[in-house]
Design a binder for these strands. Structure first.
Lengths: 243, 243
DNA sequence: CACGGTGAAAAGTATATACATGTATGTATA
DNA sequence: TATACATACATGTATATACTTTTCACCGTG
């Protein structure tokens, strides 16, 4: 029977520490397989639920991998995935020390097209909010922002003054985002877009398509068009939080 | 008694969804206080441990704040930064079930231009590796990849066969990346690019500029050009790992 | 040898129960 | 009036138990 330290911290934390220490010192490093829950129960003298909680939290934190029916293993060092951060354009502009202004072209309630109903994953056709806003950086239009908003999650969207609060800020304030989908592509500007952004028809634009979820419900669908010559999405990122 | 959806997901997940939805729709938004565990037990007809697990996980994910003896509250909205994951193009193509092939156009050692010396943050001018590769998805060229590589970190870059190993894979294997910088923009294809990607001069392309660091040293500089009509960067992301 | 069944072992989920600990509030007493 | 105590209620932790789901190894049969 192994003794856990006699500190004030809760038992499952002690178990977590015990496991992390054993991983760190390589005691289980051989085939990278940990003792089973029941073995830990026997060797540590705590209940299975407590061991389970410790293992579950370490798994959520990325230290372990668990396979039902097989066992618990030390996770391989994190596979590299490089990330890009997409920020609130209003905040970005202000952060660069420039002036942000927006112009509301459309703010209305519409019946969604069949496509939109599908994108929203609606069971039936219900009215949604629709807004089109142009964002300016120092009086130069840089982004055309079209949004479709689920009224069941954000009820008063159509009554806001988006020349004062950015649409993004309002949405973030109103509903928690649990999931985000992004698609970035490059497209030539159509007549409408060109007019609003003050660029030539056919010139290159960045198109950022975004869907956000709150729980299982699609909250917003956005089409953000950036004048390619005036804007780029940038980020600097430390994969493993080394800072 | 409230009915939870009759899906396959475990009960605590349904409870989490139920709570997130109620937060999203603002049903509890008034004083931002949630029903107590015991109230949820009564209204949902599940055990307290199950409710507790749901609440604990949502708290860990940053949606809730809990105070012992007081109650559970909706957390203030986080400063949201949405992330896009940029993957290895070869792996992405294979994952879609398509065939990946690459053609090496250039693989050489060069003296860097003054601009590159600055980008690499070199103190003096030293030779670097330079490669240009076209990546094909089912024999359709989708990405033109130009890389400049720091030889002090990746010594044998110029001796590799990049029709077999993707440049990305080789680099990731050779040196740990501690930091990544990305800039995405939309540009018209120049003559050279158009020729390699088999598209018209002036048609829209996604340009992804990337620098990677190993410690304080710039390891690679890449210029990835995607045919705008054939490729888009996509991602789906859960801000706080709620899944 | 190939195939399928069967059971053991592992993690996953759900519940009932108990007690611990922290907070707010109301009440009795000095 | 002010302090101390009792109490109710909130979340936090720990256990015992039971059942489910998945995987794997073993074994017998064709």
């Amino acid at each position: 029977m192994i003794d856990l330290p006699d500190t004030a911290s809760p038992l499952y934390e002690k178990v977590k520490d015990y496991i992390l220490t054993n991983i760190g010192t390589g005691r289980w490093g051989k085939d990278r397989k940990l003792p089973s829950e029941n073995e830990l129960v026997a060797s540590l003298g705590v209940s299975r639920m407590t061991v389970h909680r410790a293992l579950r939290e370490l798994t959520a934190a990325g230290f372990l991998i668990r396979l039902q029916g097989v066992g618990t293993f030390i996770a391989p060092p994190r596979p590299q995935s490089t990330l890009i951060e997409i920020n609130n354009i209003a905040a970005e502009i202000v952060e660069r020390g420039n002036r942000h202004r927006s112009e509301v072209l459309v703010l209305e309630t519409i019946m969604p097209t069949k496509e939109l109903v599908l994108s929203f994953e609606f069971a039936k056709r219900v009215p949604i909010y629709h807004s089109v806003v142009v964002n300016f950086e120092n009086d130069l239009p840089v982004q055309l922002e079209e949004r479709f908003v689920n009224p069941s999650l954000i009820p008063d969207y159509d009554k806001q003054d988006f020349t004062r609060t950015a649409t993004y800020d309002y949405l973030m304030q109103k509903t928690p985002v649990t999931e985000v989908e992004h698609i970035i592509s490059a497209i030539p500007a159509d007549k409408e877009t060109a007019r609003h952004l003050g660029i030539d028809v056919g010139s290159c634009c960045l198109l950022l398509h975004r869907r956000t979820w709150t729980g299982a419900v699609v909250a917003t669908i956005s089409k953000l068009t950036y004048a390619g010559s005036r804007y780029s999405l940038g980020s600097r990122y430390s994969p493993s939080g080394t800072n």
